[in-house]
Nucleic acid binder design. Sequence first.
DNA 1: AATGAATGAGCCTTCATTCAT
DNA 2: GATGAATGAAGGCTCATTCAT
Lengths: 240, 240, 240, 240
Amino acid sequence: MSRSATHESAPATAATRTQLLAAAAEIFAERGFRNATVREICRHANANVAAISYHFGDKNALYAAVLRETAPAPAGGPHAPDSQATRTLPPERKFRLFIREFLKRMTEKGPNCHHSRIMAREMIEPTQALDDLVNEFIRPQHQWFQEVVRELTGPGFTAEEIRLMANSVVSQILFYKHCGAVIERLQHRDPFAPERLHQLERHITEFSLAAIHTLAAARHTAKPTRRRTPPKSTQPSTPR
Amino acid sequence: MSRSATHESAPATAATRTQLLAAAAEIFAERGFRNATVREICRHANANVAAISYHFGDKNALYAAVLRETAPAPAGGPHAPDSQATRTLPPERKFRLFIREFLKRMTEKGPNCHHSRIMAREMIEPTQALDDLVNEFIRPQHQWFQEVVRELTGPGFTAEEIRLMANSVVSQILFYKHCGAVIERLQHRDPFAPERLHQLERHITEFSLAAIHTLAAARHTAKPTRRRTPPKSTQPSTPR
Amino acid sequence: MSRSATHESAPATAATRTQLLAAAAEIFAERGFRNATVREICRHANANVAAISYHFGDKNALYAAVLRETAPAPAGGPHAPDSQATRTLPPERKFRLFIREFLKRMTEKGPNCHHSRIMAREMIEPTQALDDLVNEFIRPQHQWFQEVVRELTGPGFTAEEIRLMANSVVSQILFYKHCGAVIERLQHRDPFAPERLHQLERHITEFSLAAIHTLAAARHTAKPTRRRTPPKSTQPSTPR
Amino acid sequence: MSRSATHESAPATAATRTQLLAAAAEIFAERGFRNATVREICRHANANVAAISYHFGDKNALYAAVLRETAPAPAGGPHAPDSQATRTLPPERKFRLFIREFLKRMTEKGPNCHHSRIMAREMIEPTQALDDLVNEFIRPQHQWFQEVVRELTGPGFTAEEIRLMANSVVSQILFYKHCGAVIERLQHRDPFAPERLHQLERHITEFSLAAIHTLAAARHTAKPTRRRTPPKSTQPSTPR
DNA sequence: AATGAATGAGCCTTCATTCAT
DNA sequence: GATGAATGAAGGCTCATTCAT
């Protein structure tokens, strides 16, 4: 009740609160919600066990706060829907940028790393917090990316077809996040190792652009009436 | 089923064991290993808590037994590496079959449904059981599928490139399993709804074949110079 | 109810019963009553868990049977009260024999070893079985030994004084049984090692005889009226 | 008592910890480590089951704490090795004091009573805690007492012989602790009844001194020939 | 604003026992 | 006469939470 009021008034409190959030993000990402213990979080944050109760109410509220406050800024990055910088780029540039930024977010270390790992867990075992996250962060980006895909394909595709293509692109990125444990065991190496990252990014981009361009060309060839894209542009990828 | 036959004298025994396995599969899939309680499993199986200790040893061993005994037969289905039926098929047929069978396994209800959900959890939060599963089930199928992809591409690709393509195909299927919760919230409908399944299967197949054929054509044409794809060869697969 | 009747009629049953007793003696001696599990006993005896219920009723009854049936024959050894062989020996010979036999019983391996270890536990943590054991085995031997001590001291000592002396002798033997764990840690060697046994036996004998003879001499010197033992006999020990 | 003084701000804390220790000592002494339940201990201490986890870690740590914190002060009593008061006393006075103090410790009621009962159990069924106890408490006192015995005997005895004599003395005291259950059943009275304690103390002292003096006299006289004791020197100690 | 202590519910496991063959 | 399966009662321990300061 008086919670939000109190943490604004005192800077010392805010420090504890921030440390608590950082520690919770790290431990929730590493262990999951249930396996994480408030004691371990408080130990990492150099805080008392009761601090969580004081600042957030209980463990659930702390988790919700972590998801809310450590989420990457929805508007700001180059991949963001409203970004001034990206709005005027050609679609293929936007497409490449999206993949690069998405991959970077999946692989970077630090607090955002925690967020993406927590998100991976949320997808397997959703909590109430997922609803808000989908609406606030995922849906806008997903729709923005679908528009990019539509720019690439040109007209002649249903919304469902566009969505499926966008999913096919995104899935290739998330795969390495969600199935990292299996890939490590299959290949005995980190799928996100920095030296492989560039190769991975290029593969996903070329693979996806090849598919999209080819499907678009086929569609327009088969339906001459609605065709807009010339066959020449179906060349899958120009070396950067 | 064939289990109770081996213990003709004590059908009640096998029944309890089987019920325990079924209940455990369901609850492990629903709640995860840690959140699942042996009490709930036993309640579902109409058995005493000590029955788990008697039949399996402890909760960990029960979990391992669930993963082992509810796993889909690695050899037997049409997508299996050793299948007589598939060995002589043309690669594109094998490719289409693999996607169809894989999707079917991800979406079907029943014990296999539980297995794939548990696997999804294992990938996020691996336990000791994952090592064996990777070696026994995942690795053989993954290698078989990579050979199919290589048949499609023809020579000229490194093992790493083949693996990346195979991953890109598989990832599109797993996406709907791992991110089902998000997709439901995005689109407000079940991504695996039976009426959409056929569309989903066709999309993943066409998208992937388009990409693979196009990349292969580009590689073979551009080989002498620097990877340049002639427009004609980009028509990868004609819709069935 | 029909229990004792059944085990007489079938030899196969008696074999199981005997194996059960032997295994129980070993494990009760090693682990104590509570720490011993019926499963381990049955495993050692190559019997089913329900066999104990069948042959003895329950774990308590099995324990009582072990104490009863593995007890050393109360009459038979040279130290036994009723032994023909010992009745006519001079008291010092009987005294030396008692110590030797008692020590031997404490140290020997085999089933009797189990009995003495169980007895040691009974003294620390008595069960209902101890009452019978005291009356049947300990009391007769204790009284017989007190008479030996009285023969050594001659008259002039109260029953209480004789009992205290007998206790002082017996205690020196039991000490190495009851405090073996401490002695092992103090001296880093087995107090009952065969090569030390002879030295131990001689020490206890000489120490005790020196005390008894000296006390007797002092008593008789101090009370000339009741003296019977000549001072000469107070020499503590003649080398054997 | 002095514990709560150190935590002036939270007297309730120390109180719970102390109550827990007292209750644990009592119940461990009465039932043994395994048979004692944390629930019963907490009930006696008017504390919650989790209090043991909080204050000590687990049942094992609580047991170790009981052994450590209820142990009699190794230095401080008159029988202690470093005691100023005893260092200059004649050996026979020290010897008598040792027996008196040892007996008193064995028989007194209260927390020390629990400690000696627990020690008796440790000797029968050692736990890891015994190692430390032997090194910290038993070994120093045992060595101090051996030196007293050597002062009584004079030179001419091996370390092993001295140790055996010391053991013979100590064993007479421990006997009434370790075999109390049997003695009660044999004599139908408490061996440590206060009215008998003085008699018991005098007996052990006189018995042991008689033996040691007599053996010493025999050794010194017989040294050149073969250990023969002159009658005169056998009068070891005149009754007080 | 923050802390150390205390709480009670719930978890997995073990055990002696009994039942149905 | 003997067995494998099943039972229910505790037992030790962990955890999120709350209380009194």
